[in-house]
Design a binder for these strands. Sequence first.
DNA 1: CTGTTAGCGCATTCAC
DNA 2: GTGAATGCGCTAACAG
Lengths: 349, 349
Amino acid sequence: MRSTLKDLARETGLSVATVSLVLNKKRHKIPTVTQERIFTAAQNLNYRPNQLAVSLVKQQSMTIGVIVPDISKYFFSEFTLGVEEEARRSGFNIILSNSMNQWELSGECLEMLSGRCVDAIIMAPSSDTTHDRLLKLKPVIEKSHIPTILIGRDGGELGCSFIIVNQSAGAYQAIKHLLDLGHRKIALLTGSLNLSNTQERIEGCRRAFEEAGIAFDPSCIFEGQYDYDSGLIHAEKVAEAGYTAVFAFSDTIACGVYRTFIKKGIRIPQDISVVGFDNVPFAQMLSVPLTTINQLAHTIGMEAAACAIRESSVNNIAAGVAKKRIIYDPELIERESTCPPLSREDGFC
Amino acid sequence: MRSTLKDLARETGLSVATVSLVLNKKRHKIPTVTQERIFTAAQNLNYRPNQLAVSLVKQQSMTIGVIVPDISKYFFSEFTLGVEEEARRSGFNIILSNSMNQWELSGECLEMLSGRCVDAIIMAPSSDTTHDRLLKLKPVIEKSHIPTILIGRDGGELGCSFIIVNQSAGAYQAIKHLLDLGHRKIALLTGSLNLSNTQERIEGCRRAFEEAGIAFDPSCIFEGQYDYDSGLIHAEKVAEAGYTAVFAFSDTIACGVYRTFIKKGIRIPQDISVVGFDNVPFAQMLSVPLTTINQLAHTIGMEAAACAIRESSVNNIAAGVAKKRIIYDPELIERESTCPPLSREDGFC
DNA sequence: CTGTTAGCGCATTCAC
DNA sequence: GTGAATGCGCTAACAG
């Protein structure tokens, strides 16, 4: 069995209290000799405080719960890495749970983490979490009395802090980049239109067009899923409809586009430019490195952890502290999949 | 504050013990009326047992620690997903920690998880963990008295169960596939030669050649790192040296190869066939879907969790139970990046 | 059937 | 300077 404080006390002939005092370096003026006696005993018995007991008495577990839809997806694994890195710097550990892309499960995770007495929760709602469903989680979060940080959703109504990347701004940058290059006929290969992310990105596209004095033609929207096949399929139509550029709403979609274009002999970017979204690692490894929008997953993870830790401590002091709302602007990563249109004539590329 | 058993006892006018009994559904023949009284009170006060306290008294935390080098890498995130899925089915949760690819940190993680009283640990050593360094972790593991499952390394010497994928068999399949297609001049684009994985894979290659009655020519080995640039660079030499196929030791390396080949106008697979290793998601999304070796990350994760749970329970009953050694054979995923050689002449492809 | 008692391992007053 | 006592929230014997 593991050794306990009691064991150390017996071993040194001191009391549990003294041993605890010394090991926790409380300034109680204890003679150095006694201290050393304790430290060596701790060494010998391989003593390691039982964090469960510590947490119980300190009313603080030094853990933060992380709920993601699916850790195998790049954004979330990179995000989680950021969370863990930052958390560890402050001595926190993380309990990870996947909601398996089902919003009901996020609720269960929330309750389970609450039972485990995590000091804070960082939750990235699954994409099937509609506004209504999100609101249903509100009482769960409130009753848990645990500071919760929402990722990718406006947590205002839920009364919790949140971190979002400005989807609209990301899309805006993508379109602006293409417009600046001279493109006018740009296809939007979106994910499902009833996802908030999709809507916001379309909004950003619209803004870019309008600021450039170009009417936004909704027929440029090709609705699909955020997957490879969507890109594969819609790229066919795009090619035939005379578009000179496509903005794929995810790098995975862009991959499908690549495949179709290559198969049809359409050159990227000479014939058609392509912009993606996410900046997954393979974006730069494609046959033509993909110009895309970086979502800053790692940074957001670190920020979320910092926020969680801050709120967990103030939570112990004064309850109602101002909730944070952090909004990141994603960044355009220019690579080789974009160039001015019609370059096959002027040989620009 | 959260409500406790004591609150429920006060509310119902019963004792803490009775409430606990009912809530835990122990068969103590308690009248239904009393039960309902308790249940509704629990409902009203939003009671949720404090798992820290439960763990402390039950001497079982229902958590398992997971140590991976870097969760942002696909293999480990997919693996971790498998672990969590399986663990949750049995009511376990996971504490995740990244060793940041530094073996010393795995040691620290081990100790931290021990302090948190996890019931079992699943550890995937970082690639810089040499045999010597792995042995240095032995005392740490032993003194923790926590059943530990090693992933990707033979845990025999450490006295713990382990799950490995047979790297040699994977490489064997890749080479055999190419040999069967008729290739004879096959380039091996490896990772660092002092990694055990690399060595085992080379061994598998050698075996495939020899079984086919072909002498293994070590000059076909192009040592690099397990990264994109290695593929990029070595592909140049490969093309000039008359190889008809390349076996890249990771899909990422294969990606680099793709890039170079495409740039040089070398067609895949008509001019040169390519086989990868890992079966990362983007392997099937490349311009030419990549034939590769599937490492079964998800399956291994689930198996690891099952193993961990089993050992954590027997650990409480009888200490020295037989350690498991599980070896998976990876599988060849045939896609479109391979075909018989010289097909440019006979138009086979 | 229900309540009392005794810890789980630790931190923290408050006496001595 | 050090130790005895108390309690964190809960379970599990054992009484009654």
